Simulated scan of single mutants.
Amino acid sequence: MTKRVKLSNLFIHLLLWIGIIIVAFPFVWMILSSFKSLPDFYKFSFLPKKIDFSSYAFIFNKTEYVRWYANSFVVAVTVTITNLLFCALIGFTFAKYNFPAKRLIFILILSTMMIPTEMLVIPWYVLSSELSWIDTYWGIMFPGIIEAFGVFLMRQFMSGVPNDMLDAARIDGMGEFKIWWKIAMPQVKPALSALGILTFLGNWNAYLWPVIVTTTSDMRTLPVGISLYGTSDAGGIQWNTIMGMSTLAVIPMVIVFLIFQTRIVEGISLTGGK
């Protein structure tokens, strides 16, 4: 029996290592390719024959990469903060208060999750044009300020906050906003962490809407700026430059994962349970 257990564990570990290699190989290849010259890149060798920093020199000296990086950071951080605040407020309202048509309104909010983004970009663009939001931070951010998934997630978790605790706070003289901030919010930290991480990563990697609503180089986000070098418009496809830009672009995501990896697992597992 012990031998069977050891063999099964060995087989599981072997499968895990195979999966790790398959997943990590493109990532490692991307990093190594960023240190190749363009002629060296087309030789399709895994390791660079000579460490070449020309792609990074080009990125920082010949492109507006730093500006694109800053744009993506501003958009991702701002949208993440607004989602955490507004979705938690709305979720708390749906979970703990009764008001007319509450169920209908909640169903209408959830129904928006069924609409493909491609169908929404036209009304978003018309609205942005009418309000002069084209090529502005607000124009990039407004579709994601409050997301239906965040409202649903926070409503589910807020429902688990004990009503007795809230009633006790009311008896002690706490206002409703203070109850939400001091009592409810600390109870749903795993959900807030999961929502914050998913929102940040989703907006950091967003491409479709930013490429539509931005018209100048100064307002491009990272995915839009990087895509420019995947076309012949930039003087040919500069693969080593793309690899360098992509390598730098994943740094915030790696940092977020390393800092919040426990919260990611806890939040996603609890989300599934809810």
Rank of each mutant, 00 (worst) to 15 (best):
M1F: 14
R4C: 01
V5F: 12
V5I: 15
I12H: 11
H13Q: 12
L14R: 05
I22W: 11
I22L: 10
A24K: 02
V28W: 09
I31D: 02
I31Y: 05
L32W: 05
S33G: 12
S34P: 03
Y42P: 03
Y42A: 08
Y42C: 04
K43T: 15
K43Q: 14
L47E: 02
I51D: 00
D52I: 05
A57H: 12
A57S: 12
F58D: 05
I59S: 04
F60N: 09
V74I: 15
I81V: 14
F86H: 02
C87E: 13
F94R: 00
A95D: 01
F99H: 08
L110E: 03
T117L: 13
M119P: 04
M119W: 09
V121N: 02
Y125S: 06
L131I: 10
W138P: 09
W138C: 10
I140G: 05
M141H: 01
F142W: 13
A148Y: 04
M154V: 08
Q156R: 06
F157T: 04
M158G: 04
M158Y: 11
V161I: 10
N163P: 00
D164C: 02
A169F: 00
A169Y: 00
E176N: 09
K178C: 11
K178N: 13
W181K: 12
I183D: 00
M185I: 11
P186H: 09
V188L: 03
I197Q: 00
I197N: 01
L198G: 02
L198N: 12
G202P: 05
A206H: 06
Y207V: 07
W209H: 04
P210N: 03
P210M: 02
I212K: 01
T214G: 08
T215C: 01
R220L: 11
L222I: 15
V224S: 07
S227L: 06
L228W: 13
Y229E: 07
T231P: 01
D233V: 07
Q238P: 02
N240H: 10
T241I: 15
M243A: 09
M245P: 06
P252G: 10
M253Y: 05
I259P: 06
F260P: 01
T271H: 08
T271W: 10
